[in-house]
Lab assay of single mutants.
Amino acid sequence: TGIVNVSSSLNVRSSASTSSKVIGSLSGNTKVTIVGEEGAFYKIEYKGSHGYVAKEYI
């Protein structure tokens, strides 16, 4: 489990790349469930599926 550490919002992406499609966003202080790691990204549970967020903001 981690907490989103941004002042505005954090993009949730379809894969572990900054060039991948943005599938949603999370507000600061949102609790997320981390299910894996891939490079500079965490794989998280997101809306019944999975998404990826940059580690530096969790």
Rank of each mutant, 00 (worst) to 15 (best):
V22Q: 05
V12A: 01
E38R: 06
I23G: 01
H50N: 07
L10D: 02
I44G: 00
G48D: 10
G39I: 03
V22A: 06
E38N: 07
S7C: 11
G28H: 12
V32K: 00
V12I: 08
K21C: 08
V4A: 05
G28V: 12
Y52M: 02
K21G: 08
S17T: 10
H50E: 07
K47E: 14
Y57W: 11
S7A: 12
S9L: 12
S27D: 15
S15N: 11
K55N: 02
K43I: 13
L26C: 04
I44C: 01
S27T: 12
N29C: 10
V32M: 04
G48E: 10
T1R: 05
G51V: 03
S7R: 06
T30Q: 12
G39D: 07
V35F: 07
L26N: 00
A54R: 12
K43L: 10
I3G: 04
Y57A: 13
Y52N: 00
G36P: 00
V6A: 12
S19K: 14
V53A: 05
G2C: 08
G39L: 06
F41N: 02
V53Q: 00
S15M: 09
E37N: 06
S20T: 04
G24R: 01
G24H: 02
E56Q: 11
H50M: 10
K21E: 12
V22R: 05
N29S: 09
S20L: 01
A16Y: 05
A40Q: 12
S49W: 06
N29I: 06
G2A: 08
T30E: 11
S25M: 15
S27I: 13
I44F: 02
I58T: 03
V32D: 00
N11I: 15
E56G: 07
Y57N: 09
K47F: 11
I34K: 01
S19D: 15
I3A: 06
A40E: 15
A16H: 05
A16N: 05
K55M: 08
V53D: 00
I58Q: 02
V4W: 04
F41Q: 02
S8L: 09
N5I: 13
K55H: 03
K47Q: 13
I34H: 00
K21V: 13
G2T: 06
K31G: 06
E45N: 08
F41H: 04
G36R: 04
V53L: 04
G48I: 04
G48M: 07
S25D: 07
G48V: 04
V22M: 06
I34Y: 02
V32Y: 03
N29A: 11
I3R: 08
Y42P: 00
I23C: 04
A54T: 07
L26H: 02
Y42E: 00
V4L: 06
S49D: 09
I23Y: 03
T33F: 11
H50I: 15
S9T: 13
T18N: 15
A54Q: 15
K21A: 15
S20D: 04
S17L: 08
H50L: 09
E38A: 09
V32S: 01
G51T: 01
K55L: 03
K43R: 11
Y52S: 01
S25C: 11
V35L: 14
E56P: 06
E38C: 09
G48T: 07
V53C: 05
A40P: 09
I3T: 11
G51W: 01
S19M: 12
S49C: 08
E37W: 07
T1F: 14
S25P: 04
G39V: 03
E45K: 11
S49Q: 14
G48N: 10
V6Q: 09
A40M: 13
N5P: 05
A16P: 13
I34S: 01
L10I: 15
Y52L: 01
G24S: 03
R13Y: 15
S27K: 14
E56T: 09
S14P: 04
S49K: 12
S19I: 09
G36I: 03
Y57G: 14
I58P: 02
G39H: 06
H50Y: 15
R13M: 15
T33A: 08
E37M: 10
K31A: 11
Y52Q: 00
T1D: 09
K31Q: 13
V12K: 00
I34D: 00
I34M: 04
E37T: 11
G48P: 05
Y52P: 00
Y57K: 07
V35C: 07
S7P: 12
S25L: 14
G2Q: 06
R13P: 01
E38M: 08
K21Y: 10
V4K: 03
S49M: 14
G28W: 13
Y57L: 09
I58A: 02
V32A: 02
Y42R: 01
N29D: 10
S14L: 13
A54D: 12
G39E: 06
T33K: 12
L10Q: 05
S17A: 08
K55S: 05
S49L: 11
G36H: 05
G2S: 05
S15R: 11
S14Y: 14
R13K: 08
I34Q: 01
V4N: 03
S9H: 15
N5S: 10
I23H: 02
E38I: 10
G2R: 04
V4C: 05
F41R: 00
V32I: 08
S9C: 11
L26Y: 02
V6F: 07
E37I: 10
T1W: 14
Y46G: 01
S7Y: 07
N5C: 10
V6E: 06
K47D: 09
V22W: 05
N29K: 10
V12P: 00
V32R: 00
G24Y: 05
K43G: 02
Y52C: 02
K55D: 00
S14C: 09
E45Y: 08
V53S: 01
S9A: 14
G24N: 02
N11D: 15
V22G: 03
S49G: 14
I3W: 13
K31M: 14
R13C: 10
E37A: 09
G51K: 01
V12M: 02
S25K: 14
G24M: 04
N11Y: 14
V6K: 09
G2I: 08
A40R: 10
G39K: 06
S14A: 14
T18Q: 11
N5Q: 10
R13D: 02
G39Y: 05
S19V: 13
G36M: 05
A16C: 05
Y42C: 03
V12G: 00
